[in-house]
Design a protein around this nucleic acid. Structure first.
Length: 334
RNA sequence: GACCCUAGUCAUA
């Protein structure tokens, strides 16, 4: 029925469709429940349309609806994602006054917002505060903290958090490994990351696409392009199916290393295998072609992506303009 | 049936 449609359109990122269905349903005198409303609010937030979400939230609150934690969490995350940390904090603090006392999930949402804005110190403060409020951090909490502290290079705090985590009985998960591996890759410690890859295997975890794309990125950054290719083919032959992100990571690595022909071959392979290419995959290949001097081919791919229903974004245009300028075709760029 | 944790692309990256 209509409610299911709102939820599934929302989940699929088709916010406008969800919104239309919702309005129609409302006009027919339907009284939506919290779950439907939150699905919509969440869909707006995920589409980086948090202002629409807030407007809708306030409108519904004015009509007497009162919301529960998931609604606030969605808003906190949306605001954090749009770098509107102050507002994210305000919403969080307002929960107390609105009679919805933040639980672990809401603290986790706020910690995620802090993490996305690199606020490691504040994250630690809120972590302490949640304990003071009688809440027990869960694995999500620890994973978020590990990421933000790792990226900020807060080594002592990291160790403290790790101890807390173990004391609370959490040994980490595949996602924990992925977070740490990615952090090591991003901070130029690829060998430590590769050691962790071995360790996680020994512990019985199966590295997944997140693990592999992080490592390929790290190897590329360390100028170890051959190792990146090796890793890619190893996992492919080990029966693990690389997804479009893993392919794009290697594509990017090849492009950065100036291996343009191999990059084109890999891209062809992606097409042949029937992957649904997303905007990042197209952007990577367009950038690669431009870098390799094949401007016309890059432009052609720009047209192909649109034919395939993939909307170019800011990065697409910047790449094309930069490539055109490099060969002096400034007018075309305009 | 709604909410909380991880990966890839541009402007000498």
């Amino acid at each position: 029925n209509c409610k299911m449609q709102v939820i599934s359109f929302g989940k699929a990122g088709r916010v406008d469709r969800a919104w239309k269905v919702f309005r129609k349903m409302q006009q027919q005198g339907w009284d939506p429940d919290n779950i439907t409303l939150t699905s919509l609010i969440n869909a707006f937030c995920k589409a980086r349309r948090t202002d629409d979400a807030l407007k809708f939230f306030e409108e519904m609150e004015g009509k007497g609806y009162h919301f529960s934690a998931p609604t606030y969490n969605a808003l906190i995350l949306g605001l954090g994602n749009e770098k509107r940390l102050d507002q994210a904090c305000s919403i969080f603090e307002s929960m107390y006054k609105r009679g919805c006392i933040p639980g672990v999930d809401s603290f986790n949402s706020l910690l995620t917002a802090l993490k996305q804005n690199g606020k490691a110190t504040d994250a630690v403060k809120f972590f302490e505060r949640m304990r003071k409020e009688g809440l027990s951090p869960n694995l999500y909490t620890y994973n978020i903290l590990i990421e933000v502290l790792g990226k900020a290079g807060f080594e002592e705090e990291l160790n403290e958090v790790r101890e807390n985590m173990l004391r609370d009985g959490y040994n980490g998960s595949l996602i924990t490994y992925n977070i740490v591996i990615n952090g090591l890759c991003k901070t130029e410690r690829i060998d430590d990351a590769l050691n962790l890859l071995q360790e996680m295997r020994l512990k019985g975890y199966s590295p997944d696409c997140h693990t592999h794309s992080s490592l390929i990125w790290g190897l590329c950054r360390a100028n170890r392009i051959d190792d990146a290719c090796k890793l890619f083919y190893e996992v492919a032959t080990a029966g693990e199916v690389p997804n479009v992100v893993v392919y794009s990571s290697l594509l990017n690595a090849l492009s950065k290393a100036g291996k343009f022909d191999e990059a084109e071959k890999l891209f062809e392979q992606m097409v042949t295998k029937g992957f649904t290419l997303d905007v990042v995959a197209f952007n990577t290949m367009i950038g690669c072609l431009g870098k390799g001097g094949k401007i016309d081919k890059a432009y052609k791919l720009f047209q192909v992506m649109q034919e395939k229903g993939c909307e170019p974004d800011k990065v697409t245009y910047t790449s094309l303009v930069v490539s055109l300028n490099k060969v002096g075709r400034v007018t075309e760029a305009c």
